[in-house]
Amino acid sequence: MTKKIPLLLGVGIILVILAMGILAPWLAPHDPLAIHLSNRLSSPSWFYPFGTDHLGRCVLSRILYGIRTTVACSFLILVFTILIGLPIGLLSGYSRSRPDHFLMRVIEGTLAIPDMVLTLAIVGILGPGLLNMAVAILMVRWAMYVRVIRSLVLKVTKEDYILAARMSGNSHVRILRHYLLPQILSPILVYATLDMGRIVLLIAGLSFLGLGTQPPTPEWGVMLHDATAYFQLAPHVMIFPGLAIVLFVLSCQLVSDRFKALDVPLQKRGV
């Protein structure tokens, strides 16, 4: 039971954060965009549990609404990345044709550049904004999933039951759907859970640099960017958004580590 504590804790934190984002209109004590200059940089109190920022906006309300921007955007990016990378990775690893070798050389060249640097370059070309940032992250991260999925497919295709399935006259589509796909879903889930935290960090980082979500939209990275000039005067404006990012990324790490541990016996049994 003790081995499941990190998994339950990680899943619980993620579910609580998602629920708080969904219920933000009812949980937020104030309008996240309402400006009250008379209350600017107020310390945490009963009326403002997390204090206020440099424009007198409620930090707690902005964090709650920021879940809808940061976490929801990262989840959509992750879903579209998998939808693009999964079929390409499956076909690439299963066919092993000349186009596959060419594709892998292109992907290796792409992955040779740090993802943050390449994403910054693409956003710089497209221009700042939430949509452009999402497109830039998607253009960079799909190659990682293709490479991971392709390596998993290459490993599974060496198993005896795949050879038996081919000798039994199964079509390629049936082999991909019924024999290969179920075997690689678990490792993909592990990788995607961990990558969710990475995407959140990437979104927050780009927004912090002014290339992602633009003010006054509530977003954790934007809140950190706005708080840098007031950190010494009112540290709470940076501490609470930073804690929100750390808490979510840590919960993704806990879930991913536990899934990885659960996946080991399955691979040994060849399930």
Rank of each mutant, 00 (worst) to 15 (best):
L23K: 07
L37Y: 10
S42G: 14
V135W: 06
P44D: 02
G66H: 02
F80P: 00
R98D: 05
N132Y: 03
G66M: 01
T110A: 11
V71N: 07
G93P: 00
M20V: 03
L138S: 12
L37M: 10
M133S: 02
P128N: 02
T70F: 09
F50D: 04
H101T: 12
P128H: 01
A134L: 07
I82W: 01
S61D: 11
I113D: 14
I122H: 05
V71L: 10
L33N: 12
M116C: 03
L131R: 14
I82G: 01
A19T: 06
M20S: 08
A112E: 15
A143N: 14
R105C: 08
V59C: 13
L118T: 15
I22M: 15
G89E: 05
N39I: 05
W142Q: 08
G85L: 01
G51F: 01
A72F: 08
S42F: 10
S38W: 05
L91F: 12
G51P: 03
I17V: 15
P87F: 09
L86M: 11
L126C: 06
L91P: 04
V59P: 12
R141D: 13
P87K: 15
G124T: 15
L86C: 08
G124P: 14
L118A: 15
L91W: 11
G124V: 15
M139Q: 06
T69N: 04
L64K: 09
I122A: 02
R141G: 07
E108I: 09
I22P: 08
A19H: 02
G93Q: 00
P128G: 03
S95Q: 04
L37Q: 05
G93V: 00
L55Q: 12
M144W: 11
G127N: 03
H36D: 10
T69Y: 03
L23H: 11
T110P: 00
A134Y: 05
A72L: 06
L76H: 02
R98S: 12
M139H: 07
M133L: 04
D100L: 01
P49C: 07
A121D: 10
V106K: 09
S97W: 02
A112K: 15
M116Y: 11
P32N: 13
W142C: 03
G56W: 09
A121G: 12
N39A: 10
T52F: 03
A19L: 06
R57V: 12
P99L: 11
T70D: 14
L78D: 04
V79D: 00
T110M: 12
L41V: 13
G127M: 04
G89Q: 09
C58M: 10
I22L: 15
V123H: 01
L103W: 09
P114I: 15
F102E: 02
G129M: 05
N132H: 09
S61H: 08
G93R: 01
P29E: 14
I113W: 13
R68Y: 03
I125C: 13
V135L: 13
A28Y: 10
S95C: 04
P44C: 07
S97Q: 05
H101C: 06
T69H: 03
G21A: 10
V59K: 10
D100K: 04
I17R: 01
R68F: 01
Y94V: 07
I77C: 00
H30D: 12
L23R: 08
T69G: 02
R40K: 15
P25Q: 08
G124W: 14
P87T: 14
W26N: 13
P99A: 12
V79H: 00
G66V: 02
L91N: 07
